[in-house]
Nucleic acid binder design. Structure first.
Lengths: 245, 245
DNA sequence: TAAATAGTGTCTATGAGACATTATGTA
DNA sequence: TACATAATGTCTCATAGACACTATTTA
């Protein structure tokens, strides 16, 4: 270590500058893991690749971060790039969709063409908005695929791993954050919210115990009752909505 | 959205290629938030910048990711870059230090010279290893600074924010992961481990309640007793060590 | 009236927080 | 013996899981 230390004061500073200007740089992309629930299944939005490599295989939507030429104009923020891609790929207003940085994938060789470092984001689309996503034609090359059917599919790049990281993040945050409200319409019943938990966590939730948790959130003022009742095949359910935001 | 959809099939694929090859790329760096505990204070390793911008101010250790020229040789993995920097900056064996990706900071303008996207990692150095870090001379420009004194300091770039993200991550993981064992020597007593919690979370931990938690970990086989006793000013304490790994 | 599902209540186990008490070493 | 601190025990409260039960609507 004394060697690496000794070279740091002068030489390293020089190298730092040198590298930054003249050494090869990676391309930086954002990839989006966009979840929704359709037909009681947790699904991810995937696009079919039209070009090599991985032509014909499913891949995450995404694109390159816009980088400016000069020090003055450096381009767009990472978060901005993610929201822009979301808008471009789904047509949805990024303000109405939960989006959050997930993890950065930067293994050498993950893209066979060149060095690409991908900053992955995950997003949650309310199921009532999901149908609009493919509305604008060009339907064939994008689809909501159930997450439990991905392993059969052989995805492009390392995108299966990216989705799995996203999935475990969503599952983890479901327990302690208000993330579940982003997977349910603006108004919802207790059983509806419970189904979200069941589907995402892939296990049955006890109605009674879930109701207790729900009532605590109600007491905490996180949720409030909404007008009307949800008509079901039997007893209608009380309708609620998320407060805040 | 129909517009963005319509242009995607042909034009967008073209743009994707085009951009990747000819559009400006950002520099990608790894920055390290390296924590340890010295003198009952949680501290971060910082280096004093020798060059502009932010000359003379404290900054996180870090450096640029090595990127290859060709598609075949794409350079080093992101994780490899982080471990390499750790080794270079501290002289410590990356195998003996907990290191983990934290978050990616990519705001435009965060480096005034050019566009730099920084993938931050955090690391935890056992306090018995920390003294070796500055051993190899060139001592003046790197130091372990207490985290509760950083706000007075005006750090370079957005590094204060990076540290704060790191801090809240460490605090969060302390509760449910075995991260505390990476901030304690190989062998430790119950009070010693409790002090780690107190220091990191910045609140007193009840000895009795902490002991309960500790004993559960003992029952779970996570910890085992080590030979000998730790001599204190009064009653000696039983010594334990972390099992696994 | 039967079926279905919304909604309630209860028992138990677990873990956290507050706090009192005992045990065992050193000076 | 006095002191410091390691180690134990107890009481209470909040939450989770399992499960039995009641209420209300539709068909």
């Amino acid at each position: 270590m004394s060697t690496s230390r000794r070279e740091s004061s002068e030489e390293k500073q020089f190298l730092e500058k040198y590298r930054a200007k003249d050494y090869p740089r990676p391309s930086v992309a954002v990839d989006l893991v966009i979840f929704t629930i359709i037909d009681a299944q947790l699904r991810v939005l995937l696009v079919k690749r039209q070009e090599h490599p991985f032509k014909g295989e499913w891949a995450l939507p995404g694109g390159f971060v816009r980088v400016g030429e000069s020090a003055k104009d450096q381009g767009e923020d990472l978060d901005t790039a993610a929201r822009r891609e979301l808008k471009e790929e789904t047509g949805l207003d990024p303000e109405r969709v939960h989006i959050e940085q997930l993890y950065t994938f930067g293994g050498a060789g993950r893209d066979p063409r060149m060095r690409v470092i991908s900053v992955a984001y995950f997003a949650l689309v309310r199921p009532d908005l999901a149908p609009f996503v493919k509305a604008g034609g060009d339907a064939s090359h994008a689809d909501w695929l159930p997450v439990d059917q991905l392993k059969k599919l052989s995805l492009a790049f390392d995108h299966l791993e990216v989705i799995e990281v996203g999935l475990s993040r969503v599952r983890g945050k479901l327990e302690y954050s208000g993330i579940a409200f982003d997977l349910v319409p603006m108004t919802f019943t207790i059983p509806e919210l419970r189904h979200v938990y069941s589907i995402v966590l892939d296990k049955e939730m006890d109605p009674g115990n879930f109701r207790r948790k729900f009532n605590r959130m109600l007491d905490d003022g996180l949720i409030e009752q909404a007008p009307g009742k949800r008509i079901t095949a039997s007893k209608p359910a009380t309708v609620y909505r998320f407060k805040r935001r």
